[in-house]
Amino acid sequence: MDIFVQQIINGLVLGSIYALVALGYTMVYGIMGLINFAHGEVVMIGAMVALFFVKAFSGLPVVILLPLALAAAVCVCMAIGFSIERIAYRPLRHAPKLAPLITAIGISIILQHLAMLIWGRNYHAFPPVIPVSAHEIFGATITSLQVFIVLIAAAMMAGLTLLIQRTRLGRAMRATSQNPAIAQLMGVNINQIISATFVIGSALAAVAGLMVSANYSIAHYYMGFMLGLKAFTAAVLGGIGNLAGAMLGGILLGIIESLGAGYIGDLTGGFLGSHYQDIFAFFVLIGVLIFRPSGLIGERVAERA
């Protein structure tokens, strides 16, 4: 029972991070119909910048240090997100569908190896500047950091929802995602909206990056790849292009993975070990898509003639 609660807690933490990253994928997809393959690398850059900022100024008190590190990571990531769109996607808006996918892969490779050039190939440990206190609930442990991660992620998601639903910018974004041509006719500057989408998504990615590196105490130039993949899976699971879907998909995927890692051995009588954790996520995804081809709460697109 305590294992169950523990895995749920771990899953919730992991899921909150997935959800933040998944939002970045889903926003871009919703507006441009494009998989921003490089998004995972933006998370990695955010993690790296935050980690090295903390390393460099570790003398500062934590309450000042962490917000500053976060601000640095957010600024760098926003700049990168903005540039990616301008350089790699905007010129290809009317190109064949797979061309932007290839540039996205190219950008992803570039970012990864830029990080490798700047920060080297080694794993970097996150400095132990955050005082971590552990709490017991239902026989499981939850750290103050984990509580923080879940709370901040929830706040960010609430903020984003408000932004999309209540503001002028949000309305313009929704209009653009429905029909860019008409939105433009109504006076929406689509270029600005698309840039804003990338910038907002990248800011969320930066936050997620700091969370990952702080929670798992580690960062690496290659970490963005798998994380991005999982987050994208989460976005698809929920129904890509749908904000609530990304949040739901992220949290579900986190929990499924944790539970899978905890129980897969028992479930299969020891035949499959916990290294099958990654498979678990994909099996769930495939299962869901077979029955709901547009994701859990994705718009059902009937075949239209």
Binding site: I87, L92, G106, I107, I109, H113, M116
Partner: peptide, 23 residues
Amino acid sequence: DPEALRMLLFGLALVLVMLYRPA
């Protein structure tokens, strides 16, 4: 790092080819 540089150039080549020859 030659390995990083090599992949960097490779990524750059992918992007440039697609930008100038999208088909």
